[in-house]
């Protein structure tokens, strides 16, 4: 079994909560951060990590999350700019090794690649998946069933 990692998930929406649940179930130590208390309702009953209510663009909140000890940070709030700011702060100021940000805007994704920020863009992913499905029926079937 691999050693336990410390992961901070910013934004506890559908994606953030899903990731937090997964990582926690896999044995990682997880802190989920969201501005709204009710967001944590989406965490599963067996989620064994911490819930931290607060605004992740404030340094105080990130310090409270012990970001300096984190191995992983995933920024999944619905605001691209929050994700970009939190990701950069995590990498440059808290020295987190693995930093990922969700970005809806593909143009922003291209720009921040140049700054070395690793991003995942649902818009790009979905459009690629759609195009594959349109172009090749066999390829798409394999993708969908895997």
């Amino acid at each position: 079994m691999r050693s336990q990692r410390y992961a901070v998930v910013v934004g506890c929406g559908r994606l953030g909560a899903r990731l937090a649940n997964h990582l926690s179930r896999d044995g990682d130590s997880v802190v989920a951060i969201d501005t709204g208390e009710s967001a944590f309702d989406k965490l599963s009953p067996d989620f064994s990590g911490f819930r931290l209510q607060g605004d992740a663009t404030l340094m105080a909140v990130l310090r409270e999350a012990r970001l300096d000890k984190a191995d992983i940070l995933v920024a999944t709030t619905r605001e691209d700019n929050v994700n970009l700011m939190v990701a950069q702060v995590a990498r440059e100021i808290f020295g987190v090794q693995r930093v990922l940000a969700r970005l809806f805007d593909p143009k922003r994704e291209a720009a921040y690649e140049r700054l070395g920020i690793e991003t995942i863009c649902p818009t790009t992913l979905a459009s690629e998946a759609f195009l594959r499905a349109i172009e090749g029926p066999f390829g798409s079937r394999k993708e969908g069933r895997s």
């Binding site: 663009t57 340094m59 970009l84 700011m85 720009a111 700054l115």
Partner: peptide, 29 residues
């Protein structure tokens, strides 16, 4: 919003080579 100010300045310099950008930090930190 600090996050917007940061991204506006970064995009301006990354994408459009604006020589000087200045962001307001609402949170002094």
């Amino acid at each position: 919003n600090d996050q917007d100010n940061l991204v506006i300045c970064q995009l301006a310099s990354l994408l459009y080579d604006v020589p000087r950008t200045v962001a307001l930090a609402n949170d002094p930190d």
